[in-house]
Write a protein that binds this DNA or RNA. Sequence first.
RNA 1: GCCCCCUUCGUCUAGUGGUCAGGACGUCAGGUUUUCAACCUGAAAACAGGGGUUCGAUCCCCCUAGGGGGCACCA
Length: 478
Amino acid sequence: MSEKTITRFAPSPTGYLHIGGARTALFNWLYAKHTGGKFLLRIEDTDQARSTEGAILAILDGLRWLGLEWDGEPIYQLARSERHREIAERLLAEGKAYRCYASPEELVAMRERARAEGRAPGYDGTWRDRDPSEAPSAVTPAIRFKAPREGETIIEDRVQGHVTFANKDLDDLVILRSDGSPTYNLSVVVDDHDMGITHVIRGDDHLTNAARQTQIYKALGWLTPAFAHVPLIHGPDGAKLSKRHGALGVEAYREMGYLPVALRNYLVRLGWSHGDAEIISTKEMIEWFDLDAIGRSPARFDFVKLENLNGHYLRSMSDREIVSQLKSLVPHLPDGAALGARIGEDGWSKLEQAMPGLKERAKTLVELLHNAEFLFVSRPVELDTQARKLLDETGKKILTQLMPRIESVEPWESAALETCVRQFAKETDIKLGKAAQPLRAALTGKTTSPGIFEVLEVLGRDESLARIKDHTNATKSA
RNA sequence: GCCCCCUUCGUCUAGUGGUCAGGACGUCAGGUUUUCAACCUGAAAACAGGGGUUCGAUCCCCCUAGGGGGCACCA
C-alpha cells in the first residue's frame, strides 16, 4: 500500500490567517513535501453568517506570502453541501441516524437539567428510539447521528498517542440541521474522505472532534485518516493567544517587517525539533520534518526569538534581495505612500548602497527602514536630543577644523575618508570618536547609524559637506 | 460540572533506567569598537510536588497541584 500522502489545511474564513493557523498550514505543507505528497486547501465556509470574502482573500494571501503554495484549486465546502446532505440521508436510510424533533427551547432545558444533575450537557437521545408517529407535525426535524452508546472510541494519534474516549460521553450530534444544511463534523468527514486525505494535521482543539468523526467514518464504512493533533500556541503569559499577543493575522507580521523565511523557521521550532538544530533552511525542514518529532506540550509565542531569527536572515540576505523585499513591503505599511514618496527613485539605489551597514543593525525590515531615514531626509537635517548634545561648542569646533580636510579628500570613498579623519584625530590628539560622533550627528541627526565613513560615501560629497556646513555655520553666527 | 491532553533553565527545546541534564533566544560579565548593532569569550539559570517500582529514577506507574482544550441545529 504505497498511496501518496495527501494533507490539507482547512481554515474557516471568519477572520485573518492567525499565527496558529499558519503553523498548522506549515506543518501540513511540510509533511506533504517531505513525503512527496500533496497539500490541499479547503475553505470551510459553511458558517454563512460569519464567513466573509475578505477573510478568504486574507487567508490565501497570507499563505502565499508565507510561501505555502497549495496543490490544485481550493475546495469550498459550502459548494459541497449537496454531497453532505446525500451522506446524511444515507445514514438515515441505513438506520445510523434519526430525525430529532426537539425544539431549541427543549434543548436548552435539557442541558440545564443535565447540568443540575451533574451529567454531561449533551443531547439525551430522546428521539433516538421514539416512534416517529409521535413527531409533532409542525416541526421540521434535524438529523442526528446515532452514536454508539457502549464501548469506547480510540484515536491512535501521531502526536497525542493512544487516546480513549468512553462512548457514553459522546452524544448524538446533529449532522443535518432542520434547514437542511450539513454541520461541521459531517462535512469534514465527507470532504476529507472525498479528497483522499491521508493525514489530518490540526490543532488539538479538534481532538474530541476526532473521536466523533471516527464514529462517523465507522458508520459509513470508511477508513479513517491518520490524525496528528498539534498543541496550540499560547501567548507570552501562557494564556490563550489573544490579539494582544500574537494572534494577529500573518499580514500583521508582514507589516512588522518580518521575513517569511524567518517566520517559517520560528514557527517550525514551536512544537517541533530536530536535535539541536535552530537555524533551519526550508530545504532542511522538508527533509527533516516528521510527525513523530512534534511535541505534546503547548508553546508560548516569543517575539524576541522571532526577532533574533529575523535579524539573522536579514544579515544573510543579499543587498539587492532586501531592497526588493522592501519595495514590496512599503505599499503595505500604514504610512507607506508617504514613505514611498520620500524614498523616491533615487532612494532605492542609495538604500542598496547603504545596505551592508544597515542590515547589520536591523532586526526587522521596518527597523531597517527607520534606520535608513537619514538617507531620505532633506536639509537641514533635524537633530534629535542626543545629537544636539554632541554638537555643542566642542563638537562644532572639531567639525569646523575637520571640514577643510574632508573637503580635499579624493576620491570620495569610505577608505580614503577614514584615513583622513583618523589622521586628523591623531594630529589634533583626540580620540577618533570625538570627531566621529559630531560628524554622525551632523550627517544623520542621530547618535547611532551605520559606520560613519560609509555614511559619508553613500550620502556623497556634496550632500555630506552641505550637511556638515549646516551645523558648523551655526557656530560662526552664534 | 464532565471528558481529553500537557508539565526539563525566564522562553523554545534535546535527552537517557546510571549524563558535569545539552543547545538556542534572552539575561549578566568581559573582549572588540567611531555610535549602535554584529561578532568572540565566560557566567548564572531547569527535570512542578508527593508517593511507589528499582541497586539506582528527569526517564516507568499512581496521586496532587498547575496549565490548556473540548462539551452547539459554530467551525
